[in-house]
């Protein structure tokens, strides 16, 4: 994300990536909880929307913009609209709020709570996962690049020129723009790679040549056909039945 590594010049600076992570994560989890404890079905749908949209924010913060936008588009824009449709079609007084027995709540919360404890325990059990050096490494790389440029300027006499005329060489400019891209946009080549992988070419792992490892063409096709089947099936299931007049 563009926020990454901007605020890393010295240690005691607020890390906006972290801040935004906590904001988005709190929104996502909070509205998920709200959804769980709300008994009105339409409000549940609304809370689900916000929770899912914030979850797409979490995905954006991992740097995978394409998946995040896909989440917004399909989950939030498609699936949940469908759900709300369903809610409206079936929303009658009796079904809008359906209460659950207290015993069910207790049981579900105990099981869920222990599952959550277990999963979080597992997530935090690996020391290396607690934090990341990515930003520091990036900063180091930038510093190294700075040093290199200064050194090469001194070595080939550019340092004596006026400040205006100190141009970067082509290689340096490419490195610089690459670094800038990584600082501002995370890793933008990813979208192209996803597209290529879907038509069967893996650009990130050229070494894997064995059949079945080269790309995702077949799954992609299967999913497309599957979607078509679902389209027809859902239309068939939900069609208005003609009640024969008796």
């Amino acid at each position: 994300m563009f926020l990454l590594a901007e605020a890393t010049s010295n240690a005691a600076v607020i890390n906006w990536h972290t801040v935004f992570f906590f904001v988005v994560a709190a929104l996502s989890c909070g509205f998920a909880l709200a959804m769980l404890f709300s008994s009105n079905i339409v409000r549940m749908a609304f809370f689900l929307v916000i929770s899912l949209a914030s979850a797409s924010g979490v995905i954006f913060l991992t740097g995978s913009h394409f998946v995040g936008a896909m989440q917004l588009m399909i989950y939030v824009g498609g699936t949940v609209v469908l759900l709300i449709f369903g809610v409206m079609l079936t929303a009658q007084e009796a079904f809008i709020t359906m209460k659950t027995k207290a015993g069910d709540w207790v049981l579900a919360l105990i099981v869920g709570g222990s599952l959550f404890a277990l999963l979080t325990q597992a997530a935090f059990s690996v020391e290396a996962w607690h934090s990341t050096d990515y930003q520091q490494d990036l900063v180091k790389e930038v510093e190294k690049f700075n040093k290199d440029v200064i050194a090469s300027m001194q070595s080939d006499g550019r340092a004596e020129l006026d400040v205006e005329d100190r141009k970067l060489t082509k290689e340096e400019r490419v490195t610089l723009s690459d670094l800038q891209k990584r600082i501002r946009h995370g890793y933008p080549e990813l979208t192209g790679q996803i597209g290529l992988a879907l038509v069967g070419v893996r650009t990130d792992q050229p070494s894997v040549e064995a059949t079945g490892y080269t790309g995702y063409l077949l799954p992609f096709e299967i999913v497309s056909v599957h979607l078509l089947v679902v389209l027809i099936g859902a239309a068939y299931l939900a069609r208005a039945k003609k009640r024969s007049a008796e």
Binding site: A53, H65, A69, M70, L72, V76, G77, V81, L190
Partner: peptide, 23 residues
């Protein structure tokens, strides 16, 4: 926000406006 997937993001967010209307 200079996004690499700007147009896709726009389309996705534009689709969310219908929520307000539905609600």
């Amino acid at each position: 926000l200079h996004l690499n997937i700007g147009i896709f993001f726009l389309l996705a967010v534009l689709g969310m406006e219908v929520f307000g209307v539905l609600l």
